[in-house]
Amino acid sequence: MAASADEDLIAQISKLKQDLKSKKSFVNACAQLTEISEQWSQDASEPSVQALREAAKAAFTALQTRFSNPKFWQAGLDLFLAIDFHVPIEDAGKWRDAAVEEVDDEARERAKEQARLRRLQEDKMHNKGQFGDAVTPLSLGELLASQGIVLVEEDDRRPGMSRDARAELRVKTVLEEDVCVVCQEAMPAGSKAKAMPCGHLFHDECLLSWVKKSNSCPTCRFDDMPSEKRHYDDVQRQVMQRQPGLYS
């Protein structure tokens, strides 16, 4: 790696390390560090490795002492998994194992499967050329397909709340100081907040950002609200009513 490129990389990592100090920028900083780790060059200098090690250690320390919400641990877990697979940092496995214990069950199983698939790909790369023809590394989709797991397209995910339903969300006064579970920032008593029909309160911008992607409550998963795709609502309603012939 050229000296100038190496210096730019170290500067970028150092800036992201500073962003890890704020709740508002922690998740995004972890995501960018994860991307850097996944594109890591084997020619990277030791100072670059050291800079990434210090940033990852800072993320782990913040998770242990300040940002304990599973949302933050999930961002950290993605980072530690990427480092463990791509970058020669000894402590990455320890950080990864600690993060696995802090996320929810679904994320924990997903992380374990991701680690297993990465080991398979690493083994395949290691064995490249040993049996005559060169072996092409499997893509993540191919690895998942080999296990009977099919990746869904973006449009197949649960749709967000309909525009009409979003417009009907009410603004209420926070009676007692609370925390918005979306951003993990405080909502002082007397301030205004947007309410879901179930009664849970959130910052206006936080809730609107959330319901554009999902029509469920971030806290209790209440989802008796119209979604953006009427077809999805119709199918869901038929499944719940167990109407015959839906899949025949």
Rank of each mutant, 00 (worst) to 15 (best):
A58P: 03
A62F: 12
E106Q: 03
F60T: 03
L151R: 08
F80N: 00
F202V: 08
M125C: 11
I13L: 02
I149L: 12
G129P: 02
A189C: 09
F60V: 00
A98I: 14
Q243G: 05
S216Q: 09
T173N: 13
E46P: 03
L77H: 05
H203A: 07
Q121C: 05
N215D: 02
Q32L: 12
D104P: 08
P244Y: 00
V235Y: 12
A29Q: 14
P244R: 04
S45T: 15
H86Y: 07
V182W: 05
V152S: 13
F202Y: 11
D19L: 03
Q18V: 14
L63R: 09
G141I: 00
L81N: 03
E46Y: 15
R166Q: 15
A55S: 13
E90S: 07
A2P: 15
R96P: 00
S209P: 07
M225S: 09
F67V: 04
A107V: 10
D97N: 09
E176S: 13
A29T: 14
H200Y: 03
S45Q: 10
K192L: 02
W73N: 09
N28H: 14
Q121S: 05
K94M: 11
S216R: 04
D223Y: 07
S45H: 08
Q18P: 02
L151V: 12
E205I: 07
G148H: 06
Q114N: 12
E122C: 11
A145R: 13
D104F: 06
D224N: 14
D105S: 04
M196P: 02
I36A: 06
S25I: 04
E46M: 10
D133L: 08
Y232I: 07
I36R: 03
E205G: 00
T61N: 11
M196E: 02
D19W: 06
